[in-house]
């Protein structure tokens, strides 16, 4: 099963694509490539009310909701956002305590994953030697479609040196960037709880779009 783990819609401040535009684009992508679904990870926000199930069904695409929030150790993707987390953390705050966030997200049945760790200032690589406790981090975004080759190389190195699992996500802000990097899971996933469970299992790998061509896997 192949999912794009990091996608922004117009609900993010700097993205222009609507959810439905991505869904129609997937129809076009599927002529050549495999993609089963995506996770909408909006910047500094999580809309509890937004329900994508009708659209998901209409276009036969799995849609999950997450968030991308900002901490003093860089940006984190959060999968499995709960009411409790939204009460406990102000998602708009750009100086969240990352260690506390990672622990609390895990305690509440989710997972927090450092996004684009190889980027300067907003990636975990810049902070790994800061002396802070990173032991709760199990997974990083090893492949990010918006990062340079060098930034992704730093992310892979971070994963290798610290025995972390790696996911892939496009970080798409525009329709045509969808799926440039994705994650290939071994087992099928049907709900956010299963997605979180699979992320802790480590049974997946980050891949580039070209690796998903029909007949190529």
């Amino acid at each position: 099963m192949i999912l794009d783990m990091h996608v922004h819609t117009a609900a993010s401040d700097d993205a222009a694509a609507t959810a439905e535009a991505y869904l129609r684009w997937i129809g076009n992508m599927r002529k050549k490539h495999q993609i089963h679904g995506m996770v909408f990870t909006e910047h500094r926000s999580y809309d509890q009310e937004r329900d994508y199930s009708a659209l998901a069904q209409k276009y036969d695409v799995l849609i999950f909701k997450g968030a991308e929030i900002e901490t003093m150790w860089g940006h984190f993707l959060v999968y499995g956002v709960t009411d409790g987390l939204l009460k406990q953390f102000d998602f708009m705050d750009i100086n969240l305590d990352a260690a506390e966030l990672v622990r609390e997200v895990q305690a509440q049945g989710g997972i927090a994953v450092p996004s684009h760790p190889g980027r300067k200032f907003i990636g975990l690589c810049d902070y790994i030697n800061s002396g802070a406790d990173f032991s709760a981090i199990k997974v990083i975004e090893a492949l990010n479609g918006g990062s340079s080759q060098e930034e992704n190389r730093r992310a892979f190195e971070l994963a290798a040196q610290n025995n972390l699992f790696g996911i892939g996500g496009s970080d798409a802000h525009y329709v045509s960037a969808l799926g440039t990097c994705m994650t290939q899971f071994k087992r099928p996933i049907t709900c956010i709880e299963e997605l979180v469970e699979e992320l802790y299992s480590g049974d997946y790998k980050p891949i580039y779009l070209k690796e998903t061509q029909h007949g190529g896997l």
Partner: peptide, 15 residues
């Protein structure tokens, strides 16, 4: 219409 802060590769930014 809007003023908000975020972080980017060059540090803290206000939009």
């Amino acid at each position: 219409t809007e003023v908000y802060e975020k972080t980017g590769r060059s540090g803290k930014l206000v939009f």
